[in-house]
Design a protein around this nucleic acid. Structure first.
Lengths: 261, 261
DNA sequence: AATTTATTTCAACGTTTGATGAAACGCAAG
DNA sequence: CTTGCGTTTCATCAAACGTTGAAATAAATT
């Protein structure tokens, strides 16, 4: 087991990580990976088995250490708040910080890994295998923490809120460069610090609005579900399209609360 | 031009749509598409050109009519609110309703198309081509409406807020079934009505929190950026992990507003 | 130094890939 | 009927695919 072998295996995994992140599992051939790594084709099978195994290895390699840190961070913020529940912001941050931080520090490897996760998360073919296998235990832990922080919330609302957060987070990591073009350069996909500042309050506000015991959605699932659903859907009605508040945003939040929730 | 030809082409496009949505562009072969459509391989090239063209055609086929409806809906809610700006909820709904509604009505074709969009949106390889080409003009229109509805908001905050909405929306359409397993059956990926009720208020709350003129993020980009950023990042501090409010959610919203924004 | 083990190279396997040219078909118009 | 055109079938192309033995080399162990 010379050190050559170890570095060869690492080169293969790094090359695979990069190419898988760029073009997905099916978009990359084993031969391309070997070429990118600068090794013979047969060495891929020798060190990493079949293509499926290689993919799983690439995925697992970082997922494990990442989730460990996320759980530690959750435990830390729980302990700091004990015996009370941590704030929503602290929980969401424990969920996103380990990702955004690594990425923002410019680690190319981690960035590629996260881009890969983004693709897997949105793939009907791969998500049931990859995401469920590597992330669901962690997510269950976070859901439990969120449940404590949101007393009186309905289960569906918590899960859907988490789902929206997951979507926002993964699209961010995809780093497709789309927001760059869209904003004419005002925003940059690679500027994860900017995301960091914004995603936590954005998601927290969404959670509170949706998971409030008095929320309209909660009421909607009761007796008068239909009309409530129409309102929630933003059906164009007199009440819904009325003038946007012009006296500051705090007021807007409360108005909206009164109106919708 | 016998009617056989028209139905053949349609069968090919439908088959391609289904398979592309399931396994992505590279995960499907032209021969599989032909088999699924029940036609000879050569007919795919004959009717739809090369694989790339076929993919674009599948994408374009529904994107055009969809975006037309979205723009009409935006115009309608703008007109209904004139001369004032429509509410945030109405704008976001005009953006999401045409998608969620078609999907919720159970159209298998549309569902597949949206699943395809979700994959493209999260693909560094395909997003710059597909999403930018077909959706950016529409998105610019919505950004403009959002800007009007959020006076005093910073450009970056609007774009990032839109980005988060886009991520939440596309992950929903991916319909990977993950939330089903995660929630133990409490939520169903296919239940787009439930999403419909929840995504609009969730996103609207996020927009308001982030795009408020008095928001912390806005302040953070000023002089005391560092400490503000730390707070936004939810760094575990005394202030951040303090007890969650126990007297209802509305109170929680206001507390949080005071604390973070 | 000799022997064993780990790693790398080379060549090849059977399949599948995207794409196309030539021939055969169906069918309406002249 | 037959000419012409849109459509379909069939056969085939070179290239790339994932994977694997067997030989060659490097490294570690005795």
């Amino acid at each position: 087991m010379g050190k050559t072998a170890a570095s060869t295996r690492k080169r293969i995994l790094d090359a695979a990580e990069k190419l898988f992140a760029d073009r997905g599992f099916h978009g990359v051939s084993v031969r391309e990976i070997a070429r990118e790594a600068g090794v013979d084709v047969a060495l891929v099978s020798y060190h990493c088995g079949r293509k499926n195994d290689l993919f799983e290895t690439v995925f697992l390699r970082r997922a494990e250490m990442l989730n460990e840190e996320r759980l530690q961070m959750l435990a830390a913020c729980r302990q700091a708040a004990a015996p009370d529940s941590p704030t929503l912001e602290a929980i969401i941050d424990a969920f996103t910080h380990p990702l955004l931080n690594r990425s923002a520090r410019g680690s190319a490897g981690w960035k590629r890994f996260f881009a890969l996760v983004a693709q897997v998360n949105n793939s009907p073919e791969l998500a049931p295998i990859g995401m469920t296998k590597f992330f669901d235990p962690l997510v269950q832990e976070f859901i439990a923490a969120l449940r404590e922080a949101l007393p009186g919330a309905r289960e569906e609302d918590i899960y859907w809120s988490y789902h929206f957060l997951s979507g926002a987070l993964t699209l961010t990591f995809a780093e497709t460069g789309r927001i760059d073009k869209l904003s004419g350069g005002v925003c940059r996909s690679s500027d994860l610090d900017s995301v960091h500042e914004r995603l936590v309050p954005y998601a927290a506000a969404g959670f509170r609005r949706l998971c409030a015991p008095s929320s309209e959605v909660a009421k909607a699932s009761g007796k008068s579900a239909k009309s409530a659903a129409n309102k929630a859907r933003g059906k164009v009605t007199k009440a819904n399209v009325r003038k946007a508040p012009d006296r500051g945003a705090k007021r807007a939040v409360r108005k909206s609360s009164a109106q919708i929730s």
